[in-house]
Write a protein that binds this DNA or RNA. Structure first.
Lengths: 159, 159
DNA sequence: ATTGACGTTGACGCTAACGTCATTGCGAAA
DNA sequence: TTTCGCAATGACGTTAGCGTCAACGTCAAT
């Protein structure tokens, strides 16, 4: 089986996941301590499955949107117990809906912040165009920002 | 001047601001320590102006969108130096634009999270509607969530 | 004169989320 | 066989953002 080194049965060392997701072994072990990850072992060494990798993704996504590890663990547990009994599913459903409401609020907050920044920007642009148009950031610089961001989407996400 | 107890010359005690924004005196003093607020004094007592109040709003908004106090201070300082010299304005403009890019990324992250939650929800709804449709959250309950949220918009914002 | 509500300044405490050693083990390469 | 490199555990350190307490001042109402 030479071509089957990838695909679902694949496993990962702690270092590999860390490189891929730009985090540290210490962090992964910490998440494990807190019950967010439970990789298999061979001997003492941790062996991460594809599922573990997916969980790690969820963890990091959760962090980016401002969730605490404890909250993320809760969510992961709800996902885990998915297809448990009906009562648990109902509980999970309610929790998820609550989360959605909270997130939508967060999104509005961010939209609001963006708008404020935009108006601040146009004021500054206005001021500058009158006093020192030469200092106005060029279109090139703007492109640089956008490019950096788009590139970022193809790397393992930085912080 | 009986009707002029409100309006721009108005000042606030620490307690008043805390009640209005649901935070604690300790927090305000902490922000002051960190250089985010600089209320006037009469004697030892802090006296907050309308401007100070506005700054506090910005601080709390900043926190809600996930900024650290240090970052918020930076932004406040940029706002302060607004209309300083042209070079500073140009610097501020660049910084603001960077922030906007970061926030837009954050917004995407949140949208993504919301979508994931939504699909999880519909899966659960599907499961429940097949096994135990009686456990499906009623339309009433959903309304409760929405109502709570809308009400929240008219109070001083909770966390 | 005292009580109570509000204010002040330290100073220490606490939680979250790791960073940073120090020490040990293990298997492969030189 | 020693030396690397990676992995593991355990313990202590660190930063942010306040909470909590103690000790004190002040003014108004009782």
């Amino acid at each position: 089986m030479p071509t089957e080194l990838r695909r679902p049965e694949r496993t990962f060392t702690i270092r590999q996941l860390c490189l891929e997701f730009k985090c540290t072994p210490r962090a992964l072990r910490f998440y494990e301590d807190k019950g967010l990850l439970k990789p298999a072992r061979q001997g003492l060494n941790r062996v991460y499955s594809y599922k573990d990798r997916a969980r790690l993704q969820l963890i990091l996504n959760g962090k980016r949107v401002g969730l605490a590890l404890a909250e993320i663990r809760e969510i992961l547990e709800l996902y885990d117990k998915g297809d448990g009994n009906a009562a648990q599913n109902a509980r999970a459903l309610r929790k998820f809906r609550e989360r959605i409401v909270v997130f939508e609020q967060k999104r509005e907050d961010i939209d609001h912040a963006i708008e404020e920044l935009r108006t601040a920007c146009s004021r500054l642009e206005d001021l500058l165009s009158r006093s020192r148009p030469d200092l106005l950031p060029s279109a090139e610089e703007y492109d640089k920002l956008v490019r950096a961001r788009v590139d970022g989407l193809h790397e393992a996400r930085p912080h």
